[in-house]
Simulated assay, not measured.
Amino acid sequence: MRTNLRGAVSNPTACSYRIAIHKKRGISIAKKKKYGKTQASVNRVRHRMEGVTSLVRGHRHLFSNVSDIVVRVPSARSHFHLFRAITTTADGHRHLYFGRTGLSINGTGAFGGGPNHFHRVDVLTQFTNGHRHRINGTTTTNRVIRDSRP
């Protein structure tokens, strides 16, 4: 078992998930709910995010990660992805960053997928050494990872 970015327990053999966001004491908590058939592996769509952070205190960090969980948004006929990673080391430190992409852009189909869709990303890193950096940009178009575990 592993935990996702918000601490919910994931089942590495489930093929589909539904994410429910719950408010508890003003904090959003994502809980995974398994549905559908259980399999050892599935084809998953992921996006790469990479670039350079904003300039703060005379330095920048590089970032590079691949999106993780896909969250469908039926009311918007779209979806977004969750992600988390750590920047490279610069000026003797690094930063944790995590968040969610924006809804899909240029998507087709019931949930805004398709081969040419992408997402916007705009998050702030966690504080380290009394400061943080902005990560801003877009993901690559989707890439299917065959036979991967959720």
Score class of each variant (00 low, 15 high):
H79G: 13
K33Y: 03
K31W: 00
H47Q: 02
V45G: 13
V71Y: 03
V70Q: 15
L55F: 06
G58K: 06
R60G: 02
F83D: 02
R84E: 04
K23W: 03
G58F: 04
K37S: 07
K37Q: 05
H61R: 03
K32P: 06
S28Y: 04
E50G: 12
A20K: 15
S16K: 15
S67E: 01
V73W: 01
V56Y: 04
F63K: 10
R46W: 00
R57L: 09
R25P: 07
S41T: 07
S64F: 00
K31I: 08
L82N: 13
H22F: 04
I27E: 09
M49A: 12
Q39K: 15
K34V: 09
A30I: 13
V71I: 14
K32A: 07
A20M: 11
S41H: 04
P74G: 02
G36M: 03
I86W: 06
A30F: 05
T88R: 09
A76W: 02
H61T: 10
F63D: 03
V52Y: 00
K33Q: 13
N65D: 01
I29A: 04
H79Q: 10
K37M: 05
S78A: 07
T38Y: 01
R60Q: 03
E50A: 13
I27W: 08
A85V: 03
T38Q: 05
R18F: 01
I69Q: 11
A30H: 08
I21W: 10
K37A: 11
R44E: 08
N65C: 01
T53Y: 00
A20Y: 10
R72N: 10
A40V: 05
S16C: 14
G36R: 07
H79V: 14
K24N: 09
K34Y: 06
V56F: 01
R44I: 15
K34W: 04
A76M: 09
S16T: 14
A40H: 07
R48T: 06
H22P: 11
M49T: 07
I19C: 12
R72T: 14
R77L: 04
T53I: 00
V71L: 09
H81F: 03
H61L: 01
Y35C: 13
G58D: 06
L55C: 12
S54L: 04
V66E: 00
T88K: 11
N43G: 14
N65S: 02
V56W: 01
H22C: 13
F80H: 11
F80R: 14
Y17T: 15
H47K: 08
R72A: 12
V45S: 10
G58V: 07
V45C: 09
F83G: 14
